[in-house]
Computed example of a mutant assay.
Amino acid sequence: MTHRPAMHLAVPVDDLAAARHFYGDVLGLPEGRSTDHWVDWDLEGHQLVTHLVPNAPQPAGSSLVENHAVPVPHFGLLLDERRFHEFAERLRVAAVPCDIEPHLRFPGEPGEQWTMFFRDPAGNALEFKSFRDESMVFAR
Rank of each mutant, 00 (worst) to 15 (best):
G108S: 11
A139G: 05
R82I: 06
P73Q: 07
R20E: 13
E112S: 11
H85D: 12
L64D: 08
I100H: 04
D133N: 15
R119F: 05
L9T: 14
I100Y: 01
F138C: 10
P97N: 14
V53L: 13
P73M: 07
T50Q: 12
E66R: 01
R4Y: 07
E112M: 11
S34F: 07
H85L: 06
C98P: 00
H51T: 08
V137K: 11
F138D: 15
H74Q: 09
P107G: 10
F118K: 07
A18T: 06
L79I: 07
A6M: 14
V72Q: 04
P57Q: 13
V72K: 01
V53P: 00
E109Y: 09
P30G: 12
W114D: 02
H8G: 05
P59C: 03
V11K: 08
F87S: 02
A69T: 02
S63R: 12
A125W: 01
A19N: 05
S62T: 14
V65N: 01
H68L: 05
D80G: 03
H85T: 04
T115C: 10
V93C: 01
L52G: 04
V49H: 04
L64Y: 00
S63M: 14
I100P: 00
E31Q: 15
N55Q: 15
R119P: 04
V93Y: 00
S34V: 01
F118V: 07
K129T: 02
F118R: 06
H51W: 11
F22T: 09
V137N: 00
F138P: 00
E112A: 15
P73R: 07
C98W: 02
D99Q: 10
S63C: 04
R140C: 02
W41F: 15
L77I: 04
P30K: 10
H68M: 08
F106Y: 15
E86T: 09
H51A: 11
E109A: 12
A69M: 04
A17G: 05
F22P: 06
D42A: 03
V65R: 09
P12M: 05
T50I: 06
L27T: 02
A69P: 00
R92G: 01
L91F: 02
A56Q: 13
P54C: 10
G24S: 12
P54W: 08
E109I: 00
F128C: 08
S34G: 05
V65C: 03
L78N: 08
F118M: 09
A19R: 00
H103E: 10
E66P: 01
G123L: 10
A18M: 05
L78T: 06
P97L: 10
S63D: 02
L79D: 08
S62N: 08
V11T: 13
E134V: 11
E44S: 09
